[in-house]
Each structure stands twice: as structure tokens, then as C-alpha cells.
Amino acid sequence: MKDENEAIDEAVDPSRRAFMGVAAGVTAAVVAPGVLLHAVAAAPRSEPVTADVRWGLLIDTAKCVDGCSACVAACDRENGLDMQSKPESQSPLKWDSQKAVWIRKVKLQDNQTGRVTTLPMMCQHCEHPPCVDVCPTGASFKRADGIVMVDRHLCIGCRYCMMACPYKARNFIHEAVHGQLTAVPRGKGCVESCNLCVHRRDFGEESTACVDACAAEGHHAIVFGDLKDPASPISQLLKDMPSRQIREDLSLNTGVRYSGV
């Protein structure tokens, strides 16, 4: 299914695109799909996502503040994870190991130098995601725009993707879920993880919940944007500052980059 997306990119009907362009009042943009995408960004998406963009994050650990977890709280609120409730008879410690966490704060210390770093960890949205390779049903997939996510309709809950993820980014929903948000369906027995606020992407919003929350705190440690657009703020920053991928030895070409680790 993931490959179909790519095929569709190539075969986009130009006249349909042209119509869209007219509708958006930017006829000139027809020739440049990238520009077009930004031009129609305010409305719900009506065309398949394309590989013209690749969404990603840049995390500047120098700006990430120890003790702040605004991004985590914002993610929980955005995706309805704050509505998770511990089953009554479950011990709090075990529940901590079983509840869904899409983004988490990690604090590290270098063994040699003693330098302490804090950073948020989430799905790294690899270009070559191991979770997609191992999924037996194809439920774990990479969207054309680089977002790695789970099609919960196909997920059988085998958890092989969780075994394969080098970032421990995935969660299995261990308990029945009630009161889901309309924008974020989630239910017992499937695997889930950060999807770069995919509903925000499809409705043309600018950023993700964690990015907004970090900015609201005044830290601006997380930058969201299109890695394929050389003019985007994230590409500009990546060009200027040293950054790396976590576990770059695996050559997964992650969409989430870190500076200062």
C-alpha cells in the first residue's frame, strides 16, 4: 500500500491539479507542486499526500529545559492520551510500563565528560523504518510525506513492530479505551505511536502539538517542517547547525534530528 502512494504521485492528473489551483486562486502555482501545496494548505486535504514533502522535526537539546514536560502534556492532550485511566486493580508501577506514551523526556549523562542533556524522544519517522519492514499485514506503513504510522484497521496486535523499533517509540494499547477524540481514533489491542499530528497535517495546520507547547513555554527547542523544502526553517537550521540522528549506525535516515547530543 505504501508503494501505491508513490505511484500515485507520479500519475497525478494535471488538469485536476490545475482546477485545484484555480480554486485556490493561485493559478501560477500549478507548475510547482510544492508551492501549490502551501497555497491550498488551509483547507482539508483533498489530494493524496505526495513525496514532494517530508515532514520532520529538529530538536535543539541546548534549548530543551530539564524538568519541563510541556511537549509531553501537549501530546497527551492533543491525542487524547490524557484520558487513559489506570484499571482499578492495576499497580501504579506496572501501569506506568503499560500506558501509552507517544513522546517522553529523557535525561542523559555522558559517562566520560559528565555532561547532562535532556531531550524529548518519540517516533523518529525513519525513511527506512524497521517497523514497516516487519509488520506482517502492512498495518505499519510510511505515508508518502514521510510520516510513519499504524493503520489500526489492519493491525492485529502482534507487536512485532515494537520488537523491531530501535527507539522504543511504539505502544501497545493494553486496556479498553473510552472517550476517544474524533480526530484520534484509538482502541484496545492495537499498536500506536507518534504520527506527527497527522490530523493537523491533513487540515493544513502549521505545526505539531509538541512544537506549539514548547514555543508557548518560550523554549523553541523543537522545530517542525518540510525537510525537502530547502527554504523551510527546519532545512535552514539543519544546514547551519550540527545535528545527528539517534542510532545513526543503523542508517535509517530518521526524520527527527537532534543537535547537541
Binding site: 535525561k107 542523559l108 559517562n111
Partner: peptide, 20 residues
């Protein structure tokens, strides 16, 4: 599986929100 994934070689995890 119980042995933690070494995401940051040469670093010690001091705190984590997710059993790292």
C-alpha cells in the same frame, strides 16, 4: 527485550518517562 536498547552509547540514562 529486558536489556535496555542502547540509544545513546556512552551515556547513562538518568531519567526517562518511558523505562529507557
Amino acid at each position: 527485550q529486558a536489556y535496555p536498547i542502547q540509544m545513546f552509547p556512552g551515556q547513562t540514562i538518568l531519567e526517562s518517562g518511558f523505562f529507557d
